[in-house]
């Protein structure tokens, strides 16, 4: 019998454990559909704020070999535009996860109340963006206290699972994860882009990114993400989504073994093409067959004794 790739994490039913990470594509419903058609198990929209934002001045993304850096700056059409954009989501054949942002718990609560519709399968709250003033790490959202307050505010209004996206930057990541769990989070996603870092063009004598610095992603950050997943798995009972530099089936298996129940894919869209989801699924299936795993659950957290 062929191994079973399907997963069910906090009532989100997925045909495979691969989730399009927020901020990669995901600006439009059509692009989410395109990604779903390329084999993603679930897709996450690009984060939406109350007001329209143009984001940082380009360059907003660069790669330096296998490292990707971004400082997109939460460009989005704002609440009204995004509501129109993300309606009729039944056109997308996989679960769609919303992503909302605010500068404080009240704003997050406002977005949960006014943006979320029953068409979304879950909502993710990134408390971990490393390069946008007022938001995530730069907005002070990475502490256990802020995590608790924001999670509570979203939980009050969201009639769907709430996923809290954390940053690897916090050393005591288990404590932040516990704060989220205690406040009612249904799952943890770790990690957002890390750093931030800076790349300078030595001929231009200037940072390349328009914002100056930006978050690191891509295959080189995978060991950091795997360690975070390992730590969070030890700290909480709710499921974990492992995100960070996964571009191959074996890398996905590694994330699962560290404790992830699902795996985020972002920079892989660049490194292996938009059909990266199909490629990883096929490779994961091959790996499971080779190693004798019948389902994803058999691998989740297997390295923890």
């Amino acid at each position: 019998m062929s191994p079973d790739l399907s997963v069910n994490i906090c009532k989100i039913k997925m045909k495979n454990p691969l989730v399009l990470a927020s901020g990669i594509l995901g600006v439009t419903k059509a692009s989410l559909k395109h990604v779903a058609g390329n084999g993603a198990g679930a897709v996450t929209i690009k984060s939406v704020s109350r007001e329209r934002r143009e984001g940082h001045n380009p360059p907003i993304i660069l790669t330096e070999g296998e490292v990707m850096m971004n400082a997109v700056g939460y460009s989005n059409p704002g609440l009204a535009g995004a509501k129109k954009e993300f309606s009729g989501l039944d056109e997308i054949p996989v679960p769609v996860i919303a992503s909302i942002i605010g500068e404080d718990a009240a704003q997050f609560g406002y977005m949960a109340r006014n943006f979320l519709t029953g068409e979304f399968s879950a909502v993710e709250i990134p408390l971990s963006c490393p390069h946008t003033p007022g938001f995530g790490i730069l907005g002070g959202h990475g502490t256990p206290e802020a995590t608790r307050d924001i999670t509570k505010a979203v939980k009050r209004h969201a009639k769907m699972p709430v996923i809290v996206k954390l940053s690897a930057n916090v050393q005591a990541i288990g404590e932040v994860a516990k704060a989220a769990e205690k406040a009612g989070a249904d799952a943890i996603n770790v990690t957002n882009a890390i750093g931030p870092g800076m790349v300078i063009d030595v001929r231009a004598k200037r940072p390349v990114l328009g914002f100056g610095f930006g978050g690191l992603s891509g295959p080189p950050i995978r060991p950091v993400a795997v360690r975070c997943v390992y730590d969070v798995y030890e700290s909480v009972r709710i499921p974990v989504i492992g995100t960070g530099g996964v571009t191959t089936g074996e890398a996905a298996a590694e994330m699962l073994m560290a404790g992830a129940s699902a795996v985020g894919v972002g920079s892989g869209v660049y490194y292996r093409g938009i059909d990266v989801f199909k490629k990883i699924s096929d490779e994961l299936l091959g790996f499971m067959r080779e190693e004798g795993y019948s389902g994803i659950k058999d691998m989740v957290g297997i390295v923890h004794d």
Binding site: I24, T28, S31, H34, G37, K46, I61, V72, V269
Partner: peptide, 22 residues
């Protein structure tokens, strides 16, 4: 177009989701 190499999603087209840059 913002990034130019198929990551940011700003140039995706309705109907297909294709990226103008890719």
């Amino acid at each position: 177009l913002k990034c130019g190499f198929g990551v940011c999603g700003s140039c995706c087209l309705d109907g297909t989701g294709w990226r103008v840059c890719r």
